[in-house]
């Protein structure tokens, strides 16, 4: 996998989310991603960035255009230094929430992207990495 472009964006307050979404849209449009695939990617990003704000107290996002077997895609990394997740398997289950949400955030985001990776250490923070390829496969 080759990284074609890379940038970082700090998310500290809700208004940053709008800017972040717009930036993803620009990247996805640049590689020619279809509207449906773009919407899925941005929705997943929206879920993850909310988690980062709500549970991680904000953090740093990294936006990249990557390429594998000459198929381009967008990779997003969400890193916070919040309390972390105790049981990642449980957090990935539909309908589970420690807050008062629907509990669709993490599992839903996973369904909306092609590659999903979560690493969390209690007390240190959580890092989620997602990729959506241009062709959606």
């Amino acid at each position: 996998m080759i990284v074609l472009s890379k940038e970082k964006l700090s998310i500290q307050k809700e208004q940053d989310v709008v800017l972040f979404r717009n930036r993803i849209k620009e990247l996805a449009t640049k590689i020619g991603m279809s509207l449906v695939n773009q919407t899925k990617l941005i929705t997943a990003a929206s879920e993850l960035v909310r988690n980062m704000l709500r549970y991680g107290g904000g953090g740093i996002t990294q936006l990249e255009i990557v390429s594998k077997n000459s198929i381009p895609g967008v990779r997003l990394v969400f890193a916070d230094e919040g309390p972390g997740i105790k049981d990642v398997t449980l957090a990935m289950k539909d309908g589970y929430s420690t807050g008062k949400s629907l509990g669709l955030g993490l599992p839903g985001a996973k369904r909306l992207v092609n590659e999903f990776d979560i690493k969390s250490e209690p007390g240190k923070g959580t890092t989620v990495t997602i990729i959506r390829w241009k062709n959606g496969l």
């Binding site: 509207l35 449906v36 773009q38 919407t39 899925k40 929705t43 879920e47 539909d94 629907l102 669709l104 599992p107 839903g108 369904r111 909306l112």
Partner: peptide, 14 residues
């Protein structure tokens, strides 16, 4: 609701 939004919501499980 836009088609892309509807497809995404279904995938999301909503």
């Amino acid at each position: 609701m836009q088609p892309a939004v509807a497809i995404t919501l279904v995938e999301l499980g909503l």
